[in-house]
């Protein structure tokens, strides 16, 4: 059933973001030809070109900003409207366990956040007319390239860092979800959700302080850098798992669609 839920959550995401992502990439491409990059200095620039470049750049960065605002709104709204609002009358009466409803929303939220970062990166690549031949002949990139292939486990490091980013995003998303699951228990849902989020943020800070004091990552790092990275990942995973279980439990036993 989880795959079926994911299918509908991803379809909803695609309806929302396909246009924004496309607009971002197209505007980056437009800016590539309107912005006066260094290589164009010998080209004659007309009096209107500066204004055009300014406007297209403004629109491009506006779309980038709008995309990240849309991601935040999407993450909050898909959970709040989808499970605690009117759409909740459909989703919460489907014959699926509550944890699958939460997991489906979570996977979709983490995916849309990472996809938006990737689109931003691609847009930057499209925006700047990079001559890849020159880039890779630069000393820094030559060293980086050699370093990457000199270290057989470089890709493993990259994978571990990606896992850390995904877990960090999941933790933040689950903090928002748990805050909303707590907020729905009260009559002033939104206010109480904000209060709950502030409380969870304080708890997260205390948890970070505690782990820093215990110096667990440093201790494990002595055994090897990979062990240290996986320890750090486990320390993000632990509160994320607690928040996931708490959110699922609240929606299963204390759901309140008044």
């Amino acid at each position: 059933m989880l795959w079926k839920l994911l299918k509908y959550d991803f379809r909803s995401m695609w309806k929302t973001f396909s246009l924004v992502w496309a607009a971002c990439l197209v505007l980056a491409l437009v800016n590539r030809f309107t912005l006066p990059f260094e290589e164009k200095t010998n080209v004659t620039i007309g009096p209107g070109d500066g204004i055009l470049a300014f406007i297209t750049a403004l629109v491009f960065f506006g779309v980038l900003f709008a995309m990240f605002v849309a991601v935040m709104i999407f993450v909050i709204q898909r959970f709040y409207k989808g499970l605690l609002g009117n759409e909740g009358y459909l989703m919460n009466t489907l014959p699926v366990p509550t944890w699958q409803l939460v997991l489906s929303k979570l996977v979709c939220a983490v995916f849309v956040s990472i996809a938006s970062m990737v689109i931003t990166f691609l847009a930057c690549l499209l925006l700047v007319p990079i001559q890849w031949g020159k880039v890779f002949s630069m000393a820094f990139f030559m060293e980086l390239w050699e370093g990457l292939f000199g270290q057989p486990d470089a890709l493993l490091y990259l994978f571990e860092m990606c896992v850390m980013v995904a877990l960090g995003l999941a933790l933040l998303t689950l903090m928002v979800y748990l805050a909303m699951a707590i907020g729905q228990l009260f009559s002033h849902r939104i206010v109480m959700s904000v209060v709950a989020f502030i409380g969870l943020d304080i708890l997260a800070t205390l948890y970070l302080d505690l782990t820093n004091e215990l110096e667990l990552v440093e201790m494990i790092s002595n055994l090897g850098q990979h062990a240290g990275l996986w320890m750090a990942n486990a320390m993000i995973l632990l509160p994320a798992a607690v928040m996931f279980l708490a959110t699922s439990w609240l929606l299963k036993t204390r759901l309140n669609l008044e």
């Binding site: 059933m1 079926k4 299918k7 509908y8 379809r11 909803s12 309806k15 929302t16 989808g82 009117n86 759409e87 909740g88 009358y89 459909l90 009466t93 489907l94 014959p95 699926v96």
Partner: peptide, 29 residues
């Protein structure tokens, strides 16, 4: 929930959907 067919006193649709999307969803679940 698999045994119950529920008609609530409000609309529960997502605005982007068509009726056929909802039929697909019901057929899936």
């Amino acid at each position: 929930k698999a045994l119950i067919s529920y008609l609530p006193d409000r609309m529960y649709f997502a605005s982007w959907m068509r009726a056929t999307d909802l039929f697909d969803l019901f057929r899936d679940f």
